[in-house]
Design a protein around this nucleic acid. Structure first.
Length: 559
DNA sequence: GCCGTTTTCGGCCCGACTGTTTTCAGTCG
């Protein structure tokens, strides 16, 4: 079993225990262990071989035994036992916004419902409102929650799909029958939600490639085999298709299978078939059409063909441009690591700086810092910086935006910091006008550098809160406030459309990982892809700048 | 169920909002 699969089982155990109203701390222990396993920076099987499962934070004797059992037998007796009491379909209901463990318990026990499909029927039959503590409003909210889930059925977050696709491609490339290959489709375009993994490979022997593909260890089932393709499902029900093509047709097909449908139909009109074969690169075909190379992320028919014709495509930002990460948590609030460990991990990535931006006091659940702990943290950071070579830890905060648009800390506290990110973590349901006013008030605060995850959306889970974005962008531009592209693949907030608008407004962007674990620093790539889809260049993004230029920019805000 | 810079036992993450209620329970961050 993989790290993610084991983490999933541990979370499910916690969920079942919670439905069964077990000891809260025991439940929390399982969740903490699951979180640690999920964020491990190496394959858990390696740890197992070195007999180091017990070294994982939050994994003690009991959980260690269960993990080892899963690694040995691909199953866990304790978990199977729990599932016989609370079926997996019941756990699925927990994904519906507004439904928690208590509600699931009542729905399961009193109505015998064990799947979302049955729940839909119960909502239609107006049965939910008959349950204790539930009414018409709750029933309506459940219905809305299910509808939101359904909007995205079958779509996977890029954070799940991209690593799976990369690993799959890596495997395929070890086949002696495959000359070259690439991830294609919406993953190559960096879309935040994708419906499947598409991989294109060039080969002279399709039959052998099909056999080689079938042998991939993570394939759960093969659903369709054609002469030049094989499709099926990997773990987590992620669908895949491997498309085979003769080597002479590879680059033409690479463009064909990468672009969106509108892009493809526009680009391939009027290209004679004989020009498509025997290309040496994608650029060759673009160039023959009188176009500059169009990066995959832009191939959506949103003006890129016209702009490429004029030779005016922006030089898009890439990962190597990033010089630091301006939104990083530590164990001082809800992060898992020490400041020095996050810094070391960032330095390993080649960064020049990170900003430690822990939560502020209102976010009690996250162990938000009060004034005293914030200054204690600053002293720790100063000390670390004294001994640092070619690296700088910036003193920051992710300060909570309160309901009325005031901040969790007074100006004299904020102005002493290097970076101030202001974020909303409460009152998501304010109406559009009030929510907009709330954000505008923050933007006008001279100590605020960055607005974190602007709309609060969670892909596949929660829509962003209501905001008048044009007013927000206007104010951000006027007040020199930076907007964050939160690189967490669940957020990618601001989205690509808003990102593209910021260029016209002259607003600067920070692409931040919002890391809570060392491993999360690597989430930066999703932010980069999102920024590329928003046509952003390195100069649009402040964390591509050198430390001095960055600090001068942040300081200027306060003057 | 995990953990220990006074601890191997007794702590461990709280508070606002919502919807159901007439004083509170459940969800969420």
């Amino acid at each position: 079993m993989t790290n993610h699969e084991i983490a999933r089982v541990l979370v499910n155990i916690a969920d079942i225990l919670e439905i069964q109203e077990e000891n809260l701390f025991k439940i929390r222990a399982y969740r903490k262990a699951a979180d640690s396993v999920y964020h491990l920076d190496e394959d858990i099987r390696n740890l197992y071989q070195k007999d180091r499962i017990g070294d994982i934070p939050g994994v003690g004797k009991a959980v260690k035994a269960k993990i080892e059992e899963m690694l040995e037998k691909s199953s866990c007796e304790y978990y199977e036992g729990l599932l016989s009491q609370v079926p997996a379909g019941v756990l699925e209901m927990l994904t519906i916004p507004g439904i928690g463990h208590k509600t699931v318990k009542i729905i399961y026990e009193q109505l015998g419902i064990t799947s979302i499909a049955e729940l839909v029927q119960a909502v239609n039959d107006k049965k939910i409102r008959t349950l204790p503590g539930m009414g018409e409003k709750s029933e309506y909210n459940i219905q809305k929650g299910i509808e939101l889930l359904k909007e995205n059925t079958g779509k996977f977050n890029l954070g799940l799909a991209l690593p799976l696709a990369e690993e799959f491609l890596e495997y395929l490339m070890t086949s002696p029958d495959i000359e070259c290959g690439s991830i294609v489709g919406s993953i190559r375009r960096g879309k935040p939600l994708v419906s499947d993994i598409d991989i294109l490979v060039a080969s002279h022997n399709f039959a052998r490639v099909i056999e080689y593909t079938r042998a991939y260890k993570y394939i759960k089932k093969v659903t369709d085999v054609k002469e030049d393709s094989i499709s099926g499902e990997l773990g987590d029900s992620v669908k895949f298709e491997v498309i085979m093509v003769a080597p002479r047709d590879y680059y033409y097909k690479l463009i064909w299978t990468t672009g969106s449908k509108p892009f493809r139909s526009k680009f391939f009109t009027n290209i004679p078939e004989q020009e498509l074969s025997g290309l040496a690169s994608e650029s060759e075909l673009f160039s023959r059409q009188g176009l500059k190379y169009i990066p995959p992320e832009l191939r959506e028919d949103r003006g890129e063909l016209e702009t490429a014709k004029e030779g005016n495509l922006p030089q898009l930002i890439s990962q190597s441009d990033i010089k630091g990460d301006l939104h990083v948590h530590s164990e001082w609030s809800d992060g898992a690591e020490k400041i020095q460990d996050m810094a070391a991990a960032a330095q390993k990535l080649g960064y020049q700086y990170i900003a430690i931006t822990d939560h502020s006091k209102s976010l009690t659940i996250s162990g938000g810092l009060n004034e005293e702990r914030l200054s204690a943290q600053s002293r720790v950071i100063n000390a670390l910086n004294e001994n640092a070579k070619d690296f700088c830890i910036l003193r920051g905060i992710e300060v909570d935006i309160l309901k009325d648009g005031t901040l969790d800390f007074t100006d004299d506290i904020l102005e002493r910091l290097d970076v101030v990110i202001a974020s909303i973590h409460s009152n998501f349901k304010l109406d559009k006008e009030l929510q907009t006013e709330r954000v505008l008030k923050v933007i006008k605060n001279k100590n605020v550098n960055i607005i974190g995850h602007l709309t609060g959306r969670l892909l596949n889970r929660r829509k962003g809160y209501e905001l008048d974005l044009d007013k927000v962008l206007e104010a951000a531009a006027k007040n020199n406030v930076v907007l964050e592209i939160n690189a967490h693949p669940d957020r990618l907030d601001i989205d690509e459309h808003v990102a593209r608008k910021t260029r016209d407004y002259g607003i600067k962007i920070a692409i931040n990982s919002d890391a809570h674990h060392k491993e999360d620093l690597n989430l930066m790539i999703y932010g980069i892809l999102n920024a590329r889809r928003g046509w952003l260049t390195p100069d649009d993004v402040i964390n591509t700048w050198d430390k001095d230029k960055l600090l001068e920019f942040l300081q200027k805000k306060k003057d």
